[in-house]
Simulated assay, not measured.
Amino acid sequence: MPNISQRGVSMPASPIRKLVPLANKAKARGTKVYHLNIGQPDIPTPEVAMEAMRQVDRKVLEYSPSEGIRSFREKLVDYYARFNILVDVDDIIITTGGSEAVSFSFMACLDPGDEIIVPEPAYANYMAFAISAGAVIKTIPSSIEKGFALPPIEEFEELITERTKAILICNPNNPTGYLYTRREMEQIRDLVKKYDLFLFSDEVYREFCYTGAPYISALHLEGIENNVVLVDSVSKRYSECGIRIGAILTKNKQVRENVMKWCQARLSPPLIGQIIAEASLDTPEEYMLDVYNEYLERRNFLIDGLNRIPGCYSPIPMGAFYTVAQLPVDDSDKFCAWCLEHFEYEGQTVMMAPASGFYTNPNLGRNEVRIAYVLNKEELAKALVVLEKALETYNKL
């Protein structure tokens, strides 16, 4: 039998999805599973999007342009302008979800062996995409005690070598919910400018910022316009994870030309998805405000409930709809698996993402989990009760 690729062996399993077989077995036993593990919103997709899907009336479902449908990109220019992100239609390339946007950005900007500096915990798929591109992730841990704030910029500079090519941030952050301040963004800008690095900025959660301060995008930063590659997606803001529509935004013409080679190789982004996403840009402000307020209420409810459980601690996330919480367990991987395999309370259990999968250092995140507050408050209340009962039982074993 021939050997499989070392690249595949090195590819990390998803901490978000790797426990799915155990969850399926629990459901087969008749156990109700509260899914706190994945950022799949339960909020209905906007009606304008659903109506656009219902109204598709074509004789042929053809390829779209490799860079995406122009009318969609033109409407996106207006959308970004609402956030003072000023781009031209040619600065935008449509991708098959935000994941492809990250992957194509890496492939277009990095050579095998190039290094990317990333604050962690970080979205686990960044590691997978870096391995695919042959790039090397160099991480700097942030701490729960400091609310996962950006580590001191001096620690970034200490990691810079002749192979360093980029810094990668997610803002607001997945998995921690941290929102970078203007000062932190300016520190990153100065480092990017000093060493002439790329700045990959994943900003798919920009709608969900829970402070009164203005939102700071990487494309707001002066003096590094040609260094920034912004990643975006409609999945979370319109509850449209399944249509797989994302985007790359960059002022750097060389990067765009390189990205387009991968876009042409994969032919085109999803046609129907783009039709739905374009219609979604007409979503009423009332919908967006209602969704924002709902997530804010869920956040407050969840964090308050978590911090009332003995031994649990979560800082207050200021963006997205995730938090990383510390639990009174020695190994969250074992605990999360145990919850699905061996525990139930009144026919219920919880599914969470072990935070170890969001770190590259195997010793970090061992007693932490990522929790997505994508369930309604009634479901969150039940999940919190089940989690507290699970911890009580587990720590008596």
Rank of each mutant, 00 (worst) to 15 (best):
K193Q: 13
A325N: 03
Y178E: 02
Y180C: 08
N361T: 08
P119R: 03
P141D: 04
K382E: 15
K138W: 00
S10A: 11
C339M: 14
A13T: 06
N367K: 15
L380E: 05
L375R: 06
I188F: 01
I94F: 03
N173Q: 05
G113Y: 08
R183P: 00
G311A: 04
A383W: 00
R73D: 04
V255I: 14
E154R: 07
K27T: 12
N307R: 05
N84R: 14
E203P: 08
D202K: 10
R189C: 07
R163G: 00
G39A: 12
M260S: 10
S132Q: 10
F301P: 08
Y178V: 07
V33Q: 07
F83W: 14
G311N: 04
T95F: 10
P284I: 14
S268A: 14
S332G: 09
L36T: 09
L179W: 02
P284Y: 08
E286K: 13
V324N: 00
N37M: 06
F104R: 01
G347A: 12
E47C: 01
L61G: 06
T250E: 02
K59I: 13
Y373T: 01
L179Y: 09
C170L: 00
A13P: 00
H220E: 04
T181S: 15
R163N: 14
Y210G: 09
K382A: 05
V386W: 04
I131E: 14
I303Q: 00
I16K: 06
E297K: 11
Y292H: 11
I160Y: 02
E225T: 11
E294M: 09
M107A: 15
L22H: 11
E378K: 05
A372G: 13
D111F: 13
P362Q: 03
L76P: 08
T161F: 02
K165D: 08
A13L: 15
R237E: 13
S201F: 07
E368K: 15
K165Q: 13
R308S: 14
L391F: 01
G98R: 03
R308D: 15
I309F: 03
R298A: 07
C312V: 15
T181H: 07
L375V: 08
E120Q: 12
S332E: 09
Y79K: 05
L267C: 06
V89K: 06
V374C: 10
L302D: 02
D78L: 12
F83H: 12
R182Q: 15
K377N: 11
N227G: 03
P315Y: 14
E297L: 06
L340M: 10
I117M: 02
A124P: 05
